[in-house]
Amino acid sequence: MEIRITRDTMSDIYFDALRIRNQVFVKEQGVPYELEVGNALEEAAAVHFVLYDAGVAQGTVRLLTNPAGSSALIQRMAIFKESRGRGYANVLLEELVVFAQNAGIEKLELHAQLSARGLYDKHGFAEVGDVFEEAGIAHITMEKGLNKQKNH
């Protein structure tokens, strides 16, 4: 297993991320493509993580840091349907948290689909606020404070 990271929206890594996101969010969940990849500035500003197993892209997530750099949003966590249940999301999330800590980010936030709350809870994220709808899917905001040391 290997995780590759890019900010280059013309790279093969980024195109692998888009392919996974298109399959999971657009085709599987019915999210309009314009909502999924609608903001080119956000896409270019984000750090994209792609997990490869035996050289084949299996999952992705992106990290979008706020302009001040003290907090960041975790977005677009997606694992191919046939690859779920293998721990890929856990590996991606752990790698992203270490990356964020090393970048000096103090707080991570995400909008979790209700079906994924358990994953984030297991990694120390806490629910904040009420359930809301995003792209026709129920979500909850979750946050995690980071310290300078790596969490294990």
Rank of each mutant, 00 (worst) to 15 (best):
A68R: 12
G104R: 08
H139W: 09
R117G: 02
M142N: 04
F99L: 11
Y88W: 13
L51R: 11
A54L: 09
K81E: 13
A116P: 06
N102M: 12
E34Y: 01
R86I: 04
G55I: 09
A103W: 04
L92G: 09
V24P: 01
F132G: 05
L114I: 14
L146C: 11
A68G: 08
R19W: 00
K150I: 15
V131F: 05
R117N: 10
G55F: 02
E127T: 06
S115E: 14
N90G: 14
L35S: 04
L93T: 11
R4C: 03
V56Y: 07
V31F: 06
K150P: 10
G104I: 07
K107T: 14
M1H: 03
M10P: 00
V97Q: 14
G87V: 12
G30V: 04
G145V: 09
H152R: 15
T65L: 15
I13W: 00
L18Y: 08
A89W: 06
F125A: 03
A103D: 12
R86F: 14
Y14V: 01
A17H: 01
P32D: 02
D130R: 05
G118T: 10
Q23V: 04
I13C: 05
K81I: 08
I79E: 09
D130E: 15
S115P: 00
K107P: 05
N102S: 12
V128P: 01
G136E: 13
E82Y: 10
K27A: 03
V97K: 13
D130V: 02
V47S: 10
D121A: 14
E95S: 15
